[in-house]
Simulated scan of single mutants.
Amino acid sequence: MTIPLSTKKTKILYVITKSNFGGAQKYVYDLARSLPRDQFEIMVALGGEGVLAEKLADAHVPTVYIPSLQRDVNPLKDFTTLIALWKLFRKERPDVIHLNSAKASGLGALAGRLVLVKKIVFTAHGWAFNEDRSPLSRFLITILSWVTVLSAHKTIAVSDAVKNDTIKWPFVKDKITTIRNGISSPQFTTCDDSRCDIASIINVAFPDNAFIIGTVAELHKNKGLTYTLNAFAQLAPKNPHIFYVIFGEGEERANLQAIIKEHGLEQRVFLLGFVKNAVQYMPGLDCLILPSVKEGLPYVLLEAGLAYRPVIATAVGGIPEIIEDTQTGLLVPPKNITALAGAIFWMLSNPAERAVLGKKLNEKITNFFTLEQMVDKTVALYHKK
């Protein structure tokens, strides 16, 4: 890492919309706590007081709460947020503002330009125009995303797939660089303890031969959980020892519960809700599944690799940059219930082969997706003229 000659610390102000602890929030947290404190003064502005705010406080990172900053479009609140960011940037005079999530990035880039911030960095964790929306909505979101990239001095794409989505955009080619997410090893519990803890949370005694599939994700349509539930329903009658546990909370809970009830899977599929440090229980899973319809570069697959867990995932966004089909996991097309069911059955039927997949994924994550690599490349971008 290159240390600047000046002894003056570089002031970084991160901005993010939500304060839960999804991928974008983990990214901000990891950077904020990992940047060298002898080189950087760090602050985070955020639109909530959730898990991210708590973790930043524990890491002694100063935060600023912006009540009007929220995901949903609201012209009055959005204008209020723009003014709040403008005032914050004028007061703090950061050398770099680093923007994350669509709403915070669009408003933050505009406020940053108005205040003449020296460097505006925007990290694209994925694009909202890749979600299931109307053609008009996708077009408008694409235009707004393009304007955000234009307004920033530099844009970080968390995967080549995210960057490649911008290939046809004019005037932005030299503004975008790929810096993949990186991770340090979480604290895992043992396999036996994890299975016991999961059983305790859901109040169910797993049989000794239980095959436990797991997902760690926000309960959102983008995660494609309905497809896995329907795939599981195809396998459940002839495989009474398979179970599915889903860690996470979100707007799709009622819909998922209805599907579980429809198929009579109340004792086989469990929505655990938000579980603090859910990643620690990964060793208790026989297989992790991520059936997303839209992704950037999901942290949960990096965490699964460090836990030596075999993975089934959909070939969307940056996922194929982590999961190479039949090499470091199994890839299936998105929204394909039959393919998901087949992949689950293959994992169930091939214990030795799935262990090899987990080992190879671990090797890939350890070598190519480290937190140190992500931090070093991001610091270099901050210093680049």
Rank of each mutant, 00 (worst) to 15 (best):
Y65D: 08
L256Y: 01
A32K: 08
I167G: 06
Y281H: 08
N209D: 11
T148P: 03
N130L: 08
A307D: 00
Y27A: 02
I97N: 01
N336V: 05
S101Q: 07
L150W: 13
C196D: 15
L288C: 07
D208P: 12
I344T: 08
E249R: 15
R195G: 06
K55S: 10
A24P: 10
I16T: 01
T80S: 15
L348G: 02
T123E: 04
A254R: 14
L290P: 09
F232L: 09
T370W: 06
A217H: 13
T142I: 08
V293R: 13
I212V: 14
D208V: 11
A341L: 11
I242N: 01
I260S: 02
A315F: 01
L82M: 12
A152G: 03
V375L: 02
G22A: 02
V117R: 06
R309I: 00
Q257I: 07
R90G: 07
T80A: 15
N367R: 12
V15W: 00
F243K: 09
T190E: 05
R37S: 13
L76N: 13
A217P: 15
Y308M: 00
E372S: 11
A109I: 13
A104G: 03
A57G: 15
F89L: 04
S68H: 09
S184H: 13
K223P: 08
Q257S: 12
K335H: 08
R138A: 05
T81R: 04
K55V: 06
S105Y: 11
M43Q: 13
I213N: 01
A278W: 03
G296W: 09
I143M: 09
S68F: 09
K175H: 11
P291T: 12
Q70Y: 11
K55C: 05
Q267T: 14
T328G: 00
T328H: 00
P298A: 04
L52I: 07
V96E: 11
A339E: 14
E353G: 01
G112V: 03
A341E: 08
N350W: 02
E262M: 12
V61P: 08
N181I: 07
G23F: 03
A24W: 06
S185W: 09
Y308H: 04
V117H: 06
L330N: 03
E321I: 02
W146Y: 10
D165C: 15
E303N: 00
N255Y: 14
S68D: 13
D193H: 10
L340K: 01
T80I: 15
K91C: 08
M43W: 07
T189D: 11
G305L: 00
I66G: 01
H60V: 14
T190K: 09
Y27G: 00
S105D: 04
L88V: 11
I176Q: 03
G250T: 14
A104P: 05
T226S: 14
V379N: 05
V44T: 11
E49F: 06
A380R: 10
Y65P: 08
L46H: 09
I312M: 04
P291D: 05
N209V: 01
A161K: 03
G106C: 02
L116V: 12
I42V: 15
I289D: 00
K26S: 08
I176A: 05
D376K: 10
S137Q: 14
L229P: 01
E262D: 13
L5A: 12
E353W: 03
F122V: 06
P170Y: 02
E92C: 06
Q187K: 10
G273A: 06
I42Y: 06
P333D: 09
